[in-house]
Nucleic acid binder design. Structure first.
Lengths: 196, 196, 196, 196
DNA sequence: TGTTAAGCGAGACGGTACGTCGTGTCTTAAC
DNA sequence: GTTAAGACACGACGTACCGTCTCGCTTAACA
């Protein structure tokens, strides 16, 4: 499992120094954004030859994509608080934390890069798909508990919640107030509530 | 006003060929994304010397920013249909159209670039701010008509709506169904409805 | 003797595929000149691993040298026509044929490489030395027949003849007329004739 | 005239630092042979950017060719001693001096490179052609003085003389004895002498 | 009506990174 | 014991853009 990932004991794909290369890649990305990330820089800092990098990843974007995927950066586990409201609230909170927390540099740069580079578009898709897959459980539990009609499209809810966070953090670039999560969830939940 | 903009009859800022330069800039952006946009390419296609471009814009991003601002790309007028639902629905529809319509190439590339380049971040802020300023009227009318409590934060609503569109188009990259706008607006509106 | 050479029945030195390696080496040399000859290319075409080549020859030049030596490329037997004029004439003719004939590609490339690579210089020396050793017989026979004073230095004659051919073919790169050999030999022979 | 050459006050072709670049080019060639000559090395030593070099010369060989041509390396003036023997003797002496003298490093490396690189072949041709053109005067004077029949082909003589020197220096790589020039000229002259 | 300054074309340049290719070394494991 | 397989450091290749600079020409405004 873990040791099936490239870099740990060279199981399948990736150079011996894969872990270090990934680390440096994200480090440079955090430091100088997409432009600050150069293959030569990664090679130098990782103590590896440039050719080695190109042997394993066709180009800069592929490397970046692999580094992002391999890292746990965009991965977080699904909350299970016992109530739909609690779950979604926690979800939004985690999203916000992800984008504004300690590692926000890397994360924001990564998300931005993913959003703007065609060759990384698959990553965006995969990320959202993963999100949805993960959160599906949340909604199923909610339906079981009778908190949500099964006619509601989970995809739509995730889009609303995640989109709102994105808008605040990435576009508006304004500080996210503490109760932002609650407000957002409140609106969405009531909007989905069974009428009548 | 109009003739205060660079490019029209050389009023203040910008070279004589400003319009052509802007046009080519967005053209290249549409064709090859941010990477396909090169100052040298713009100069060549616009029949202008590279030096001229650098005389007026400090760097590539500044040029791109100016081109985006100067174009009407990210600008659209506020709908006034008589009802809040109608207004918001139309708003979302226009956003979707913007990102998926004929000029979607430029628009998406522009938005992506803006999202990922620190030196274009101001454009993102300005864009959302503009949005908000424009749409404020919508909400004021709604409050007057009694369709909306004045305790509701318009900013939140815009974030939800715009964010959902962004998520669908930019991240999920999936086709946007025709009634997507209606569904989104429905949820948000009901979520904001006065509890009673 | 023959089986002392590397490659034939793996007698002493050289990998099992030595013959094939040599063949491919000269093939690549003929095709693309010295630059077109790459160890990796040889390995690939010969169906051998690069490491194997480096195990047997320290570097590219060594391989090339060995391939040239092993081939009969630069080797030809001494003519014995019965007269000095005939012998020398034939000698020049053979030289010309060597450099302009069917295999001229390899030969010229080989000679050029030998001329310009310090690590192949020994080959040049050896080649000329061989020539001289071989032709010595020609001159001894000529002296015996009284066609040549024994005060004449054979080395000088060979230098003149071979040099003229080299100049024509390699430097001047002009087609060599049919009677070039005769003219050259004529001049040199008369120049060496006993005065009186 | 002199200032029509590239490098001196930028008249036509070549970067501002052309002279320095040429100098360094030949310097590196002398030091490390053709392999030791790298564009990056030249750029570094000449205090010029690599791109500048590639702006003016398509590749390494073109640069080398230009450097050789521009230098006076392969150029020497025609002797005029009053007799054919004197002229040719001096000619050979100068050739030998060229290849064994102080600057022999560059010269030999240059000649070798020229001989072995297809893209420098034109230089070889040009060099020999120049030689011939220069020496033609020697032969015309000799014919006027009655020292030589006009039926003798000067080209042949030059090939013989130059070829012999080449053979000695480049192929045989043996020290050239002092009276080598005289011997060679003696043989060739007598070989060309009017019979009768 | 000249003069003067702003705008521009032309072109060279230093600089950084790209992605590629080849050399020669090394390790591991198979035949 | 030889070889295949494959990873690697190293160095250079030639290319593409970036952003800067200098030099003259031209053209419009201003004196």
């Amino acid at each position: 499992m873990a040791d099936k990932l490239p870099g740990s004991r060279r199981p399948g794909r990736g150079p011996r120094q894969a872990q270090e290369i990934y680390r440096v890649t994200l480090e440079l990305l955090a430091d100088g954004g997409y432009d600050g990330l150069t293959v030569e820089g990664v090679a130098a800092r990782a103590g590896v030859n440039k050719t080695t990098i190109y042997r394993w990843w066709p180009d800069k974007d592929a490397l970046l994509g692999a580094a992002i995927v391999q890292s746990a950066l965009l991965r977080f586990d699904v909350p299970d608080t016992g109530s739909l409201r609690g779950d979604l609230s926690e979800l939004v909170r985690r999203l916000v934390a992800l984008m504004t927390g300690a590692a926000s540099g890397v994360v924001v740069a990564a998300l931005a890069a993913v959003a703007s580079r065609p060759s990384l578009a698959w990553l965006a898709r995969e990320f959202v798909t993963d999100r949805l897959a993960g959160e599906r459980a949340v909604f199923e539990r909610a339906v079981e508990r009778g908190e949500l009609s099964d006619s509601v499209d989970p995809e739509l809810i995730v889009d609303l919640l995640a989109g709102a966070v994105w808008s605040r953090v990435m576009l508006r670039q304004s500080p996210v107030s503490d109760d932002f999560a609650d407000q957002v969830v409140e609106v969405v939940l009531r909007g989905c509530a069974d009428r009548g």
